[in-house]
Design a protein around this nucleic acid. Sequence first.
DNA 1: GCCAACGTTGGC
DNA 2: GCCAACGTTGGC
Length: 155
Amino acid sequence: MPQKRKYWLMKSEPSAFSLDDLAKSPAQTTCWDGVRNYQARNFMRSMTVGDQVLFFHSNADPPAVVGIAEVVKTAYADPTQFDKKNKHYDPDSDPSIPRWETVDIKYVRKFSRSVPLDQLRKEIRLKGMVLLQKGSRLSVQPVSPLEWGHILSLV
DNA sequence: GCCAACGTTGGC
DNA sequence: GCCAACGTTGGC
């Protein structure tokens, strides 16, 4: 039984990995590794192939939703947790029960006009967005179908 | 660069 | 189980 497509938002600092970087990646696909937050991991675990992702540039000027990606591979063990040289190495993660997971996402498109954070804040329909809640730092978060539709109407 | 908000760690 | 200390995130 095909599952219904779901919507998400993922944050990335463009100085580290931008949407353009994704577009230039082999097969325009990348492994979304390095996530070390349980809530974010759990959201990735619930993703299915075909889920749509808003690509958000954080720590950017301005912070903004810049385009769309999609999930092309469901959650699997994040290899960086076992790599001693990796910044995200986790010595406490047991390879037989990996603690951290990742998904693969693929570039879909870049908006001709990105939607800056302050514009999102002005939209009454988006008041409930996880992204806009005070102190919200989740780097992987759900987006409701209504929020998704409304954001796409802004680009 | 500042700093508020958050998540995690570890002593007790 | 509490909570202070610490490290990180990310807007500004």
